[in-house]
């Protein structure tokens, strides 16, 4: 198929390009501070996210993990009470201070939320939404993208006969996979996942986790979770946060077997 060749070759170019700058961290945070009115939610965060790995942000709920994740694609704009300062480099662009347009930088990151937030439209249009925003109007190209990304998350077979029915009719596990497909369709390099399995049943959770392991070949994944076991299963790099601070970070073996700080030790004991 002709279109397929065009798209795939474009993708290969993109991947090659990607491998050329492998040595750079894909996402770099410097001196990030977030205040909500008088509360200091994130305290001077410095962090580098390694490429094509699963980085897990771990910590008790309310410690600022989700806020940190939202800073990364500047969704903090929606929360008018938050004051954000510092730098977050997505590859070369500092998303917090750039003059470039934010939507196209945001497209480098796909978002998966705690609950599947579907757009009020059909299954097909949910996936095509981001692609259309890029200005692609060609029907065949759109259809190819929808099919490819639904296949990638293993949803194609389940929904191919009802692509134009409302997305809300899917089960919640399917909905979350649809959200993932929707995010992948804009060809991001990073996937931001905010406790993506917290609303799902064990089987659906397992599917999502397995997908993450598959996806890290091509994408960098940043996963927020408070479930210790999930972190153990998935993490290549763990960042442990506690009340707005990064307490410890490193490879999972090191962190989980030899915690250096009391806070983490305590958390590991209680978490298990």
């Amino acid at each position: 198929m002709e279109i397929q060749n065009i798209v795939d070759s474009a993708e290969n170019n993109f991947l090659n390009l990607n491998s050329g700058i492998e040595s750079f961290p894909i996402l770099r945070i410097q001196n990030l501070n977030v205040y909500a009115e008088k509360n200091h939610i994130l305290k001077d965060i410095n962090l580098e996210i390694p490429r094509n790995k699963i980085t897990v942000l771990l910590g008790p709920s309310g410690c600022g993990k989700t806020t940190l994740l939202k800073c990364m694609n500047k969704l903090t704009d929606l929360y008018k009470e938050l004051k954000v300062s510092g730098n977050i480099f997505i590859e070369q662009d500092d998303i917090l201070n750039t003059k470039k347009d934010i939507p196209s930088i945001r497209q480098k990151m796909g978002l998966l939320s705690q609950r599947p937030y579907l757009l009020p439209m059909s299954i097909y249009k949910n996936v095509a939404y981001g692609v259309k925003l890029k200005g692609i109007r060609d029907k065949k190209l759109l259809h190819y993208s929808v099919e490819k990304n639904l296949k990638e998350v293993g949803l194609w077979e389940e929904v191919k006969d009802r692509l134009h029915s409302p997305a809300t009719k899917l089960s919640i596990g399917q909905q979350q996979r649809l959200c993932l497909a929707r995010g992948l369709a804009v060809k991001p390099r990073i996937i931001l996942a905010d406790e993506p399995t917290s609303a799902l049943d064990p089987i659906s959770s397992k599917i999502i986790e397995n997908l993450f392991v598959e996806l890290k070949k091509h994408y960098t994944i940043i996963l927020v979770t408070h479930i210790l076991r999930q972190a153990v299963r998935l993490a290549d790099h763990v960042v442990f946060m506690y009340y707005g601070d990064i307490i410890e970070q490193g490879p999972p073996d090191e962190l989980f077997n030899n915690p250096k700080t009391e806070t983490l030790k305590k958390y590991l004991v209680e978490g298990n």
């Binding site: 694609n73 929606l78 990151m109 009020p120």
Partner: peptide, 16 residues
């Protein structure tokens, strides 16, 4: 309208 839906739309590259 839940804020999560707006987040989803913005994260897919939509302007506000």
């Amino acid at each position: 309208v839940p804020i999560g839906i707006k987040e989803a739309s913005l994260s897919l590259g939509a302007t506000s």
